[in-house]
Write a protein that binds this DNA or RNA. Sequence first.
DNA 1: GCGGGAAGGATATGTGTACC
DNA 2: GGTACACATATCCTTCCCGC
Length: 665
Amino acid sequence: MGGQWVGEANKLDAWSNPDSDFRQRSNMPLSQETAGDCEHETAVAPVRDAIVPLAQNKVERSLRSRVEPRNYEIRNHAGPSVIWKSFGIVYDTATGAKTNFAACKTCSKTFIFKTGGKGIHSTGTSTIVSAQQKAKMTAAAVDYCASDMRVFESVSGVGFKAVIQAALDIGVASNGRVVVNDLLPCPLTVRRNVEARAVSGREALSIILHDHLVSDVGFATTIDMWTDTVKKTSYLSITSHYVNADMVLHARTLHVKPVFDASHTAVVVKNELKSGLAVLEIGQAFYDQIIVVSDSGSNCRGAEGIPSEFAWLACLDHKLATVLTTVFNKTTTMINGVKSAPFYKYNNEQHANLAVLFNVFDANKKLVEYFKRTNLQCMLSKTLNVHDMTDEVIELLKKRNKLDLFNFSQDLLAEIVSFLDVFQLATLSLEQFKSPTLHKHLMPVMHNVLDDGGNLVRKADSASLIAAKGVLMPIFIEKFVVRMCMSRRRSCAQCSSAVFLVEVIKMQLKCDMAKYGHQLDTEVDAAVAPPVSKKARVGNGHSMYDMEEDEDERSDDRANSNFSNRIDIEFKSYNQHTISDNEKRDSEVGGEFNVLAWWKTTGAKLFPIMACVARSILCVPASSAMSENNFSDVGNTLTKKRNRLKPRVVNDLMFVRSNRDLCKK
DNA sequence: GCGGGAAGGATATGTGTACC
DNA sequence: GGTACACATATCCTTCCCGC
């Protein structure tokens, strides 16, 4: 218990009366009453701001009114504040009632003691650290806990304090030693600040996202579900992705919200997404502008779920994995009660060479098992790429004369690795949610696999690999290309080639341009033209209004025509535009061409309508990797030791971690 | 009317302890 | 070891009162 000293009572009747029972009990000579070396001179000094000298007469009045002719005594008080070493509480001796006063045990100087306050020792002992400095330290501690995923308790840890104190001793404390305990907030305060910062951050993010929705640019989200291993709580991760007017792509966590509904059906997931958006005051009116990227699990893409109200896109990263799994999984099944041969799906002459391919896979499984059993993996260089690692594995086996154990074609293995390399690169590229993925990465990946006719482009493949690709490509096209087309343009279910996809995207671009172009025109009109007032009908039934209306319609037709022409011209110009060397140089970020930098420096000036389209398209991530990353972070935060962490606090921590720049300090 | 002080509500922060 | 929570407690802010 601490206290706040709000007034000082000198020469009080009760204290100065030689007959006072209190004086006898306290056994204090009057000469000490004004002693200058009492402990309270130093003990009270740090909280001098709380002492109100002008309250003295009130203290006197208050004590007088109740003192005479009663007796009082000072009793020790076991509050946590260091102040209680020097002070005690004044009690009514007769009734044992506690007064609102405290007095110095040495000189009996009396002060009003106002209950309530956050403890003298906690905030009052330092005359060096100001409230602003402490607030700054608290904000830094919040960043520390949220960004580094540290436990709240760690700010009171011995090691952490030692680091801070060392820094202070060396740098800051040039004018005197700062005690680290004065500077650091308690863990609970850090936790509360995390919650408060999350609230302010969500308000700021809500404003930003609303701006994108109101201007029809929209934004994208990724979602994914995950269950933690400690408390088995299910979480839904929701992230937001948008390109702002300055052509900067932002990827932010919206929620990592707990889902307490045991059934994770499509409808439940959709409603959780909606409730998460509702926290940011994003309602149904805007759903059609929000593109949701998720894996193709039935709880995310079910007909009654997210696709029923939002534009849904499959995570291409997951699609790649599905394609590879489907093709390279040596699946068997039961046919008429008998286990089928491997690759039963491809049990025909066309795919006869697949058996050779899968023999390599089988050999590799044995190889991995051997490396684990003999702990040989520690001999491999972890920094090598897959190609070099394959060579290193072969060399290692040769040195040990174990290569024959595995009986596989080295050439075919190298070929497979080479073939899979493009998928690995694609996966790595797709997972970059902090840079545009749709144009920059997806299209080159596809072009590496398909030519303009949708045929294979790699040459000199072995018969086995050709067989694998023959199986892979239809699946690839079906799952990877067509689905994407369908979700963007639901009418193009028949499309079957990458070329068609490009055309579809172009068509979509033109449709989008009409929307943004109209918006730009409206803004210009509003800026230059006064509003048209409607006039009453007059005379023979015809009216000035009718005439004006006719004129308006003709004007609208001309405007629409001009508008349409403008779109055609800009779209045609965009299609024909070749990026010059100067443009490339102006658009480099970190030594590489950056498509958003190009839109900012050149594109927005040459193609203002297309620039709006670019913002709405380039913000869409190709994968739900950011949501996956969030779960990785939650896993690191929600450990066995932190099993009491509430899901809503986890959510706040993840939000602050991702949106530090938006969270007010 | 103005300025200063007091009172009390609102809010932020710290302490102690139960609980996992 | 770590979090949640009830409770204690500083401090800020607004409102009201009172003397000049």
